[in-house]
Amino acid sequence: MRLDTILRVCAKLFIPFIFVFGLYVQLHGDYGPGGGFQAGVIIAAGVFLYAIIYGLSAAQRAVPKGLVEFMVPMGVLIFAGTGIYSFVVDTNYLDYNNLAHGDAVEGQHWGIFLVEIGVLVTVASTMIAIFYAFAGRGRQ
């Protein structure tokens, strides 16, 4: 597909908007539909589109395989680490009320923000890692 000008140009136009939409879904999850899972999938879909149009090696230069495989457990660690941190500030595991120096509503905002980042990182990187693993095998 590398020689198809229309697909290349359209993909080049679309991909930045896909990533910005993914970030919108992630950061606007408090107010509208969406959240870490949906945003992670949308961002992974952007990388998929890039890999399909421009080739797997170009995609792996932009989003290296090692980074992706490192991010898979990092997301779970961010999520679980938020829970551990809530121990440090004298609340129960994954209770965000004390995260922002006693202001419960502010603490909930921070907790939800961090936890959603963890979900985003794990979902996006898992999807990309599975895709790399499939696409990198070649016909046998």
């Binding site: 408090d30 509208g32 959240g35 898979v72 779970v76 905002h109 939800i112 979900v119 794990t122």
Partner: peptide, 28 residues
């Protein structure tokens, strides 16, 4: 309690944080 207008998000991430942690671990 949370100041988050979207109840889906606050239930998923805060009230049922354990559940979502489990789901993230499943994906992992």
């Amino acid at each position: 309690e949370t100041g988050v207008p979207n109840v889906v998000t606050s239930v998923l991430a805060s009230y049922r944080g354990f559940d979502t942690l489990g789901e993230t671990t499943v994906i992992f």
